[in-house]
């Protein structure tokens, strides 16, 4: 599928957001997906041309990140978290049920049925930073919290039937192509949809309110004199097997 001139212009526009244009590549590939439904050879060529890098280099990037798809995905891309916590909490069973229900394997698009108004693709995904809502399912990268196999099936059935489905912490679901356009940095005006936070996010705050627990008043005083104030001491205090940059002992 060739890249239309409006898309091409928008790809150029993305590259211009950054001090060095190659920085635009990740959002540019999101835009290619939004326009073409997947990363295409033509999209790779257009990015390479705009950024003045080789197509092999663009391919290297496009195949590194898992959100870039080299096969067409559905109108709604369903991701079931099967990282340990969600898997244990039911993600594995949800994923199995959806595979069976949609008759697809991982990262595949279900065959459309007569009368369907949308297609569904299914993928098992890694931790999506919503563990307090486990088991979690993402549809076009919107949260669907606290799922069960039954709720998951009903979500995909509703989507296929063209019924509106809302994210538990966001707007009515948009299509995958529309979502990819937001990831490319083009605002869709839906930021004000949905709640501030889901219920689990607020449990702690509610308990604090009930107990009148607050942060100290501004005049509270303490000192951090025991916190390292030299580089070497900081290196020793920090977790040495993480965040290597701070912890490598420099020879200087």
């Amino acid at each position: 599928m060739s890249i239309e001139s409006q898309t091409y212009d928008e790809l150029v526009e993305i590259s211009q957001r950054y001090p060095e244009k190659r920085s635009g590549l990740l959002p540019m590939l999101h835009l290619v997906q939004s326009a073409s439904g997947q990363v295409t050879a033509e999209g790779i060529k257009a990015c390479a041309e705009i950024l003045e890098i080789s197509e092999a280099e663009v391919s290297g990037v496009a195949t590194f990140y898992t959100m870039y798809k080299r096969r067409p995905v559905g109108d709604y891309h369903v991701g079931v978290c099967t990282n340990t916590l969600c898997a244990v909490m039911g993600g594995d069973l949800i994923f199995e049920r959806l595979k069976d229900h949609l008759d697809v394997g991982n990262d595949e698009t279900a065959d459309g049925r007569p009368g369907d108004s949308a297609t569904i693709s299914l993928e098992h995904i890694e931790c999506n930073a919503a563990c307090d809502y486990a088991p979690v399912m993402m549809v076009n990268w919107e949260f669907l919290d606290n799922q069960t196999p039954e709720s998951a099936v009903s979500v995909v059935d509703d989507l296929r039937a063209g019924k509106p489905v809302h994210s538990t912490r966001g707007p009515k679901l948009v299509t995958w192509k529309e979502a990819e356009r937001v990831l490319a940095g083009f605002n869709d005006g839906l930021a004000d949809e949905g709640p501030s936070a889901g219920p689990a996010s607020l449990v702690g705050l509610k308990i604090a309110r009930e107990n009148s627990w607050t942060a100290p008043a501004s005049n509270a005083a303490g000192t951090a004199t025991a916190v390292a104030d030299t580089k070497q001491a900081a290196v020793e205090q920090a977790d040495t097997s993480r965040a290597e940059s701070e912890t490598l002992a420099e020879e200087s």
């Binding site: 959100m67 990831l183 839906l190």
Partner: peptide
């Protein structure tokens, strides 16, 4: 990239 509404 996998948190669309947060990005919005």
């Amino acid at each position: 990239g996998e948190v669309l509404h947060v990005i919005r």
